[in-house]
Structures are given as structure tokens and as C-alpha cells.
Design a protein around this nucleic acid. Structure first.
Length: 748
DNA sequence: CCTGGTGGCTTTTTT
DNA sequence: AGCCACCAGG
């Protein structure tokens, strides 16, 4: 996983820890969390209380006091990022690069264990890890014989059901009939079973299986479990509030030694549990002391990140939740109170975007770097308004968490080619590439291949060869497939002789894949070719193709080129674990935040989770948090009046400063006004307490004439060929014809 | 086999 | 309104 780590990283400068210096400058609670090494320990770590530091120092402490060897500690995180960070910081503390550790994400660690014991669950150690795309395609195939009405029971829904079962540690055998009534008239369990069978045939598993299989092995194979009991003397877990049931079972199995002891330390914050919708069980953390009798609990409540006002606002808000272990964030800093949290009402979502961007710009002029500012939204659709405005303003920004590198079509296609190369039996990958680029292999031809493969119990590629040999496949189609197989064969030889980088380049060229994009006239095509170059560059960082593919399957991320200072836009979920000097929190309106859907589906529990999300949002800010609510917002097609979020009422007055920049509704009027809620253009006179709403400015639509030469930041230069109220259609020289918001375009 | 039209949906996301 | 998935027709 870390094979690509540059050895020259300054973090690894030799700097052996002397004595117990690493324990200095820790507060008493932090020290307790580190020095209570034996027995179960729950560390409740509020936002900004030095959680990561405690975790890594504890790791080092165990090693430096000779309690365990590096490989006898199991350290688990949720994200690769967290794992990487921990590895680096442990390395720094120890004065050398941390290698050979059992430190990684739940999934990466499980993959490693599963490769050792794959036969136990009917796989071989070279099993493939499927991505969501593959899972869905496979499930659709498996579902067919049941003739399930896919209108009522769509495949993604069923995949969700299966995943949730896996999250709960339920193999098909463990799913009880009572569990299986709602979906597809009680066929879900049967489909699940068939799906698992098919995965075994393909020597593949999905993400859920990594956890599920290993847990099942630990449950049923006492000798293997004993082996890990002997190995792992200490277990560290990050973000415990996010664990789901299998993860919990897995941890408990590994932690509880035969003599009943358990050196497990879980760090988490029940107030930051925001992933229940994907199977996380807050109960895991709430129940810790019962699960591990004799557990000690340490609370980290001194916050070193944010000003007193920010902490006060966040604390006041979260106090409205009932189901908590209870924790009060106190400021651990000596400095001033800082500025109050701003709550700003604006006219509508456009005004909101304008106001946020103006303020960001003015803060930048005052010397704040854009890299230290973030806009945190509840849902993806909110980003658009900001993006448009930022482009217009010319402020550099980045959207965090859009489509990631390894999820792009061209990258997935290439990976499929590489998977076939690596494992000719990878049918899902073969299916993806056999007609990409178009080779005339449609559903009919594929059907034939499948039938043949099934009857011979062979993978698709082998079946194709057979059909070619006995001339069942002939003509143009046969020729195409035969060329593809020959190319793959030739590439395999090249792979052995020249290595995976050269082989990949050859394969992409010879298969016609690169030509497919070269001939593509869409504006994205050049970018895709760029991405492919980038992929090849990344490939060179790995010694073998297999290792590269393992990395991609588990890590799914890729560093894009280093960036100038940019304003970040991301979701609140995506912001967990990050911090910024200045945080913009737009869209605090009923229905948006808290989200209507969560309220409808999750009731009070849902509301509490939304509130925790709000808490996460506010506590991301070090110096200043600005919360926005708009009087009306465009949802799908039309403008709808919106009411301020109930969370705004829950913020303690003494820590906030309210301001109205437009016609936003006020809290006190919310309940009565909702009865008469009307669109902003018909706002009832007298209801706007401060001043009349500023009229919505006319859209800044510079008149474009047909034939006008224009420039777009991304698409380059072109000619205007049509105009309407907000949009301009432009024929670009390089990028084809596009309909764009006129505000993006500049006259030449 | 490919294209274009239609209908349904529309929170959050890691691995 | 826009995107995507699926189906009918050329």
C-alpha cells in the first residue's frame, strides 16, 4: 500500500525519540489515554481535542515501552487518508519509516488477512476485488432467472439490501426468513445466495465480503483466530462511532483473548456519528463499556482548534440531542474569544452565493489564504451556485469529492483491460472491454459467449477462443474478437519481457482504445487522454501489475497535481476530520438542512444525526464560521420559499451575531409565516422586519450578438450561434457546440 | 447494433 | 431542469 512512499520525505528524518519526551506537552487526559495501555479503553475525543495525536503517540508509546513489537499492534482506520497520516506520524515519532505494520483501513487489513486464508471460504489468494460497477452488473445477471419486476425492485436497491446484510455480518445462511419479506416478495435472500455463489465462481469478492469473509473465518476457525490472538497484543481503532456491525464483530473477535482480557483502545466521538445511513451503528460506541467489561473511559474535552464562540455555538447546538454519552468541549487555548459565529440571512440562493464569494474575496484581501477557507454544503446540488459565482469572480476553487480519478470511465475501462491481462478469468472485466471500443459485440454475441462459458465451465475469454476454433464465431465479429484475443496474448508476452508500463501502453494502442478517444470530438476527450497518461505514470510507481491493481481496488484515490491556494467546496460529510480558519455554512434552511428526506425517513434519530452534522460543520472552523440561510431557493425547477433551519434557533445567542442582508425570513416568524408562505416576489409587506428586500438584480447578461467571438475559461474561443435569456450557444473551435450560462463567457 | 426518445428520480459515501 | 437507465425503431 505504501510502496510508492518517497523515502526522502522530511517526515522520516532520523530523530530518535529520547526518553519520554514524546509525552511532554500533553494534557492529563491525553496522557491517561496514552498511558492506560492495558485493558479496554474508550477515548471519547471531541472535535479538535488532539485525537490523532493521542492515537499515534499511544502507538509509539506501546512500542517504546517494549510492550509489543511493531507487527503485534493492529491499528484500524476508516479511510486511506487517515491510515496514511497515522503511518507518517508514527514514523516521525519512532524516527524511522513505519513499515511492516498492521496499520490500515478495515478493508485493507481484511484483504490482507483474506489473502492468507482465502481457501477457507472457497476463493484463491489471488481473488479480485470488485468495484460498485461490477457488483451491479453481476447482480443484474444473477437476478434474471427470478424475473423480478425491476421497476418495483431495481437492482441497485437490492444491492443495497445485500450490502446492509453484509454490514450486519449476515451471510446468506444467517439471513432469517423474517428479514427477507419486504424486497422482491421474499426473494432477496435467494438472490443474495446466488450472487455470493457467482462471486465465488469468479474468484471475486466485493467490499462487504472483505469484512464478512474474514469475520466468518474468525468465527468458525478457532485455530486461525488463535493465531491472530497470539499475534495482536494491542488493538487501536479510530472513528469508532462509524463502525458497523461486522466491523464491531471483527474487532471483538480479535480483541477478546481466551483469558478474557482485551487490549483494545477505541477512539471516537458519538457527537460526530454521521454515517448511520450506510450501516454505522452509534450503539457500538454507546455500548462499549458493556461489551468490554472493566473498560475505562477517558474524555478529551479540551479543544485546541476553535475560538470560544465557535465552541460555545457548537456546544449549545449539540446539547439539543438526547442520545449522547455527554461531553463538553472547553477551550484549551489562552487566546481571545474570537469573533462570534455569524448567522446571515440573504434573499435567495443566488444572493447567498454572491455574498459568500464576496466575503471570501474580502477575507483574502485581508490576508487569509483561500486554502484556509471552505464552503461546506449539505448536498451536492448546492455546489453549483457557488461554482458559477466563483468562476465569474475568478477565485480559484476546488470541489472536493466529485468523481474521483479511478471512477472515470476511461480509467475504469483501462483498469478492465489490465485486469483481463492480469487474470484472464476476470469475466466482468472482459465483458466491459470486449466491446470497448465498439467491436460489434452486442448482447446477442455476449449471450452466446456466456452460454458457451457456462457449459464448458470456462471463463469468457476461453469460451471465445473455443468458439473461434470451431468456427461458431466467424465473419467480421469473429475477426474482431480474434484480433482482441491476439492483442491480449501479445501484450502478455510483452508484459513478461518489458514490464507493465510498456505493456499497458501497447495494449491501449493496439486494442484501439486510445484511437477511440482520439476520434471522439466531445470536449471531454482530450482530458480523458490526459488522464490515461496520468494513469500510466501512476503505474510506474508499482513494481508489478498485480500490486497496482490491489492498490487501486482498495485505495481508489490519486493525488492530482499539487495546487495553488484554492477555496474548497465540499459536503459536510466530506469535511469530517478536516479544519479551516474560515468556514462558510450555506443553506441552513428547513428541508435543506436538516434535510427533508432524512426527517421523513429517519424521524427523531434522523434529526439528531443532522444536528450532529451541523455540529461537525461548525467545529471545522478555527477562527470564523459564517452560517447562511436564504429566503428562497431553487429546487429542481422552481423557486420555493424557505424557512430558516431550526438549528439556528438552537444556537446560543451569546455566541452568534445575526445579520440580515436581504429578505430572509426571521426565526421568530417562522411558524406563523409558514402558514402564509409565499414566493419571494410576493413577500407580504410588513413581514420583513429590517428593511425591504433588495430586489433581485437583473441577471448579468451582457448582450451577445449572433456571430460574436467569445472566450470560455475551459472551452476556449468560439462563435455565438444562438442566444436566449440566460444562455448562449457557442460553437467552440476545439470543444464543439455548447449551451452555456452567459456569465461564463467573455467577449473577445 | 446503434440511435434517439421517454419516464423516473433527485442526500450524505468509504472501501 | 437535467441526468440516467431502459426500450422501441431504423
Amino acid at each position: 500500500m505504501t510502496t510508492s512512499e518517497p523515502p526522502s520525505s522530511p517526515l522520516f528524518a532520523p530523530q530518535p525519540a529520547q526518553g519520554e519526551s514524546y509525552l511532554e506537552r500533553l494534557n492529563p487526559e491525553q496522557r491517561a489515554a496514552i498511558e492506560t495501555t492495558d485493558g479496554p479503553l474508550l477515548v471519547l475525543a471531541g472535535a479538535g481535542t488532539g485525537k490523532t495525536r493521542v492515537l499515534t503517540t499511544r502507538f509509539a508509546h506501546i512500542l517504546l515501552t517494549g510492550r509489543a513489537k511493531p507487527w503485534q499492534i493492529l491499528a484500524v482506520t476508516f479511510t486511506n487518508k487517515a491510515a496514511r497520516e497515522m503511518r507518517e506520524r508514527v514514523g516521525t515519532l519512532l524516527g524511522n519509516p513505519a513499515e511492516g505494520l498492521w496499520l490500515g483501513t478495515f478493508h485493507a487489513l481484511c484483504a490482507r488477512m483474506l489473502r492468507r486464508h482465502a481457501e477457507t471460504v472457497g476463493l484463491t489468494s489471488s481473488f479480485t476485488i470488485l468495484d460498485t460497477d461490477d457488483q451491479l452488473r453481476l447482480l443484474k445477471q444473477v437476478m434474471e432467472p427470478w424475473r423480478i419486476d425491476t421497476k418495483r425492485w431495481p437492482a441497485p436497491g437490492l444491492l443495497g439490501v445485500i450490502q446492509r446484510w453484509k454490514d450486519r455480518g449476515l451471510t446468506p445462511e444467517r439471513v432469517t426468513p423474517t428479514e427477507d419479506t419486504d424486497f422482491a416478495n421474499g426473494h432477496a435472500r435467494a438472490v443474495y445466495e446466488a450472487y455470493q455463489q457467482r462471486l465465488k465462481q469468479l474468484n471475486a469478492c466485493d467490499f462487504g465480503d472483505l469484512m464478512l469473509h474474514v469475520t466468518e473465518i474468525l468465527r468458525t476457525q478457532p485455530d486461525i483466530l488463535a493465531q491472530y490472538h497470539r499475534l495482536f497484543r494491542y488493538i487501536l481503532v479510530d472513528e469508532y462511532q462509524d463502525t458497523n456491525t461486522v466491523q464491531y464483530l471483527w474487532l471483538r473477535l480479535l480483541a477478546k483473548q481466551p483469558d478474557g482480557s482485551a487490549n483494545i483502545c477505541c477512539v471516537g466521538d458519538d457527537d460526530q456519528s454521521i454515517y448511520s445511513w450506510r450501516g454505522a451503528e452509534v450503539e457500538n460506541i454507546l455500548r462499549f463499556e458493556k461489551d468490554f467489561p472493566g473498560a475505562q473511559v477517558v474524555r478529551l474535552e479540551r479543544n485546541y482548534r476553535s475560538t470560544r464562540h465557535i465552541l460555545g455555538a457548537a456546544a449549545g447546538l449539540i446539547a439539543h440531542n438526547d442520545e449522547r454519552l455527554g461531553k463538553t468541549l472547553r477551550s484549551g487555548r489562552e487566546d481571545s474569544e474570537g469573533e462570534k459565529v455569524r448567522v446571515i440571512g440573504v434573499w435567495d440562493s443566488d444572493a447567498e452565493a454572491r455574498s459568500v464569494c464576496e466575503r471570501a474575496e474580502s477575507l483574502r484581501r485581508q490576508g487569509h489564504s483561500l486554502a484556509e477557507m471552505a464552503i461546506l454544503v449539505r448536498a451536492g446540488f448546492q455546489t453549483r451556485a457557488f461554482e458559477e459565482r466563483l468562476v465569474q469572480t475568478g477565485l480559484p476553487y476546488r470541489i472536493v469529492g466529485g468523481i474521483r480519478f479511478y471512477e472515470r470511465t476511461e480509467i475504469r475501462d483501462t483498469l478492465a483491460y489490465l485486469r483481463v491481462l492480469n487474470q484472464p478469468a476476470d469475466d466482468l472485466a472482459f465483458e466491459r472491454i470486449v466491446n470497448t471500443p465498439k467491436r460489434g459485440v452486442g448482447p446477442a454475441a455476449l449471450q452466446k459467449l456466456h452460454a458457451c462459458a457456462r457449459s464448458l465451465s470456462q471463463p469468457l475469454s476461453a469460451a471465445a477462443r473455443t468458439l473461434l476454433e470451431n468456427a461458431t464465431l466467424k465473419g467480421k465479429l469473429g475477426e474482431q474478437i480474434s484480433t482482441l484475443l491476439a492483442t491480449l496474448e501479445a501484450t502478455r508476452e510483452l508484459l513478461a519481457r518489458e514490464g507493465h508500463v510498456v505493456a499497458t501502453e501497447y495494449l491501449l494502442e493496439e486494442s484501439g482504445y486510445l484511437d477511440m478517444w482520439r476520434q471522439d470530438r466531445s470536449p471531454e476527450a482530450p482530458g480523458r487522454l490526459e488522464n490515461l497518461k496520468e494513469l500510466i505514470r501512476a503505474l510506474a510507481d508499482f513494481p508489478t501489475l498485480g500490486e497496482f491493481l490491489e492498490h487501486v481496488a482498495l485505495v481508489m484515490e490519486h493525488d492530482e497535481n499539487a495546487q495553488e491556494a484554492r477555496l474548497s467546496i465540499m459536503t459536510l460529510h466530506g469535511a469530517k476530520g478536516l479544519e479551516f480558519d474560515i468556514v462558510f455554512l450555506p443553506g441552513w434552511e428547513e428541508g435543506v438542512f436538516p434535510s427533508q428526506r432524512t426527517l421523513d425517513e429517519g424521524g427523531l434519530k434522523g434529526l439528531e444525526e443532522e444536528r450532529r452534522l451541523a455540529y461537525v460543520g461548525i467545529t471545522r472552523a478555527r477562527k470564523l464560521a459564517l452560517i447562511y440561510h436564504a429566503g428562497s431557493r431553487r429546487i429542481y425547477a422552481n423557486w420555493q420559499p424557505s424557512m430558516p433551519s431550526r438549528f439556528l434557533d438552537e444556537l446560543p445567542e451569546e455566541h452568534i451575531a445575526r445579520k440580515n442582508e436581504g429578505g430572509a425570513r426571521q426565526q421568530s416568524l417562522r411558524t406563523t409565516e409558514s402558514l402564509f408562505a409565499a414566493g419571494p416576489l410576493t413577500a407580504t409587506p410588513g413581514l420583513s422586519p429590517t428593511r425591504r428586500p433588495t430586489p433581485r438584480p437583473a441577471p448579468a447578461a451582457p448582450a451577445f450578438a449572433l456571430g460574436q467571438q467569445v472566450r470560455h475559461p475551459r472551452f476556449g474561443e468560439g462563435t455565438v450561434i444562438a442566444v436566449d435569456r440566460h444562455h448562449v450557444e457557442v460553437a467552440f473551435e476545439g470543444a464543439g457546440t455548447k449551451r452555456l450560462l452567459s456569465s461564463f463567457i467573455e467577449k473577445l
